[in-house]
Each structure stands twice: as structure tokens, then as C-alpha cells.
Design a protein around this nucleic acid. Sequence first.
DNA 1: CGATAATTTGACCGGTTGGTAAAACCTTAC
DNA 2: GTAAGGTTTTACCAACCGGTCAAATTATCG
Lengths: 213, 213
Amino acid sequence: MAIPRAAKTQRRTRIQEEKEELILEAALDVFSVNGFRGSTIDEIAEAAGMSKPNLLYYFRTKEAIHRHLIDRVLTTWLEPLRAFDAEGSPESEIRSYIRRKLEMARDFPRESRLFANEVLQGAPHIEDELKGPLKQLVDEKAEVIRGWARSGKIAKCDPYHLIFSIWSTTQHYADFDVQVRAVLGQDMSGEGRFDDAARFLEQIFMDGLKIRS
Amino acid sequence: MAIPRAAKTQRRTRIQEEKEELILEAALDVFSVNGFRGSTIDEIAEAAGMSKPNLLYYFRTKEAIHRHLIDRVLTTWLEPLRAFDAEGSPESEIRSYIRRKLEMARDFPRESRLFANEVLQGAPHIEDELKGPLKQLVDEKAEVIRGWARSGKIAKCDPYHLIFSIWSTTQHYADFDVQVRAVLGQDMSGEGRFDDAARFLEQIFMDGLKIRS
DNA sequence: CGATAATTTGACCGGTTGGTAAAACCTTAC
DNA sequence: GTAAGGTTTTACCAACCGGTCAAATTATCG
């Protein structure tokens, strides 16, 4: 008798590990483009190179796959913000935060789009995480920024909207990639636009925050 | 014999005008949340308070409704950028561009999300518009900005990425509304956050571009 | 009014959806 | 080898999908 999804043995077999990873990879492709409702299990199964019932042997429902992906993204996604260090200098911290977020937009655009799709559609699966852990983390870092402003290290500004603006400008290059490419033309379809973006964003934020380098 | 969709009379009847508007309104609600593939005709029909065949009497296909909405949004959406005037001062032009885009995010969040969903999902229905009219318009305005930079009115910067950053920061308040609200907490769930955002963005862009006010 | 055209409805269609059942097929450990 | 458990497949289901059709209903206008 087959009791799936490692219910019995606790320890997952080699095949389980491989196939689950395969499925998640395929699901990331599909979900990040079509969103949860717009994606089908058949599509994911085909992308993963297996039959639908076989896929459903590893993940009981479509939601389970999505949930798994979202959870994974949520943790890695906030890593750069977590690394934001109160002890560091405003210049290096903000500059490297921008750079890291931009690198993630370049290297993990699917993850960015998965998240964007979810939030755009009202965040039905992650509202609690947004109001809980995310808000808490942002509150904490906002306080750091506010401290820098109070001590005159950076210009006075609303720390929350500063964080929002860094999020939006950097993620834009992943989420609106098609538009960015269309506007820049095919000459800039290489990865050069990320370097240009980094230069621009660092300049505008540094000067905008009156940080002398 | 009923030849629908104003094929015969050219002049649309009162009922046609009303119902079509009703459908588009309902469809905007649905499409802007779920994207094209994630939305169903049944859902739109119910939201519009009519039966599915009745809805399909006014719009032959699901795509026709979506197409209609996208077309409408595309024209009104770029209005602020079109208004960008080469003769005006950099300060007033950029400042009012930011303000107008932010007002649109506040007043027409569904339109913003419809567009975001479309682009996020690879812009399958509007790729031509992006590469054609949109690129052309941006190219034109980028040249204006480049001129300002050359003549020393604003700091030297990449005009394309400047436009991208204004788009992303302002639309963020519509597209990621749920996240913004979650992070700011319910105290800021009123419309005050838009004023704060306007203050922040005008500050950062003005100082970032070294524009003396 | 009556007639003509515009609108609305219910029944329906083939294909797809998320998901299940059970049997067949492999792997692994003894 | 063989038996137990892990994996895959085939066949299937009810609900839903986008869309059609013809008949019924309603609005318009002379």
C-alpha cells in the first residue's frame, strides 16, 4: 500500500526528493507567468515531464504546490532586508541593499513574478505573513533608517516609503521585464540594463537622501 | 433577426451603450484581480448581473472584452507622459508627472492592476503596442530629459531608467496595495499614505536629480 | 395597435478542470 | 529471490470552461 508524501517513513526517498524538486521548478515556471488561478495542474505536470496523477502523488493539491513555492520565496526574498545592518553606514547599507535587490531581480525573476502575481491578486494566500512577519521586519528596519535621519546621517524622509521605493524600482526589472525590454529596444536586451539601472538607482537614492560619498 | 453588436444600425442603442459599459465595469473588477486566464466569463457575467449568453451577445468572446479594456487603459494610461512638456521647467514637469501618476494609482487602481497583470504575464495581447507606440513616446520624452541634463538643468542620468523608476514607484501603490496596507498597518489604511508617498517621492526625485526648488 | 428588430433566456456542446481509485509496475532490503 | 513498500499509469468522475442555438421575451416605431 502506498502512503504518499512521506507520511510513513519520515525520511524521504531519493526519488521523492528529486521529483518534488522537479515539480516545484516546473510549477515556478507556470505560476510565475499565469498566477494561481490561471495555472493548471496539467500544464505543470507536462512541464515537469510527468503525468498529472503522478504529480498529485507528490503534492495532494494545486494549492499545496503553490503554498510550498510561496513559503520558500518568502524566506529567501526578505534575506537582503534582513541583512540590513543597523551598525553599518547608511551609504554602504542602502547601496548594497539596492544592489542585492537588483541582483535578485536579475537572477530570480520568476520568484519575483510569483510574489508579484500573488500580491497583485489580493494576496489571498499570504495575507497573514504580510501583516505579521513582514510588517515586523519592516518596522524594525524603518526604525534604523529613522535613527539615521534623526542623527543627520541621511536626509529626513519617511522610512517606509523609502523601503517601498527600493522594492518597487528594483523589482520592476523582473516584474515588468517585457515592458522594459520593449521600451529599451533589442540593443539593450542583454544584461547591460541591470548595470545601468544599478548606476541610476544608486545615484538617485544617494543624492536623494543627501548621502555624501 | 438579431444581428448583435451594432453590426446593422451603426448607431448603438441606449441599452447597448448601458450594458456594454456595465460589462466593461464588471470585467475590469474581475480581470484586474485574476488576470486574463484566471478570469471566467461566468464570473464577469455574474458581476455584471446578467446571464452568460446575454453577456456574449454584447461581446463575442472573452478576449474581446479584455481587448476593449486594454485598449481603453492604454490610451488614458499614457496621458500623463504625453502631457510631459519639453517647454516647461524640469521641476514643474517632473513634479507634476509624479503627482499625476500617483493620483492615477489612487483613483484608478484597477486599471493599473489590469495593466500590471498583462505585462507580468508576458504581455501576450499588447506586445506590439509596447514595442511601437509606447517605445516611441518614451523615446521622445527621454530625449527631452536628456536635453535638460545636457544643459545642466538636472543632474546627468539615464532618462529611461528615470522614467522606469517613476512608473514603478507610483504604480506600486496600486499594484501592491495589499502589501503596502499590511506593512503600514491599519492606521495608514486611509488615503493619507498617498500624500506621504507624494511628499517622499517628490523629495527624493528632486534632490536625486539635483533640482533646486 | 401591430410588426419588426433588439434583447434575454434556458438548454446544450465538446473540451478542460482539479482530483480519485485501483491496479500495474518498479526499488529496495532482507 | 522475494516480499513489502514506493512509484507510475490507465481509466475515470463531477464540475466547470468558453461558446452556440433557437426560442421566448421585450423595446421601438409607424
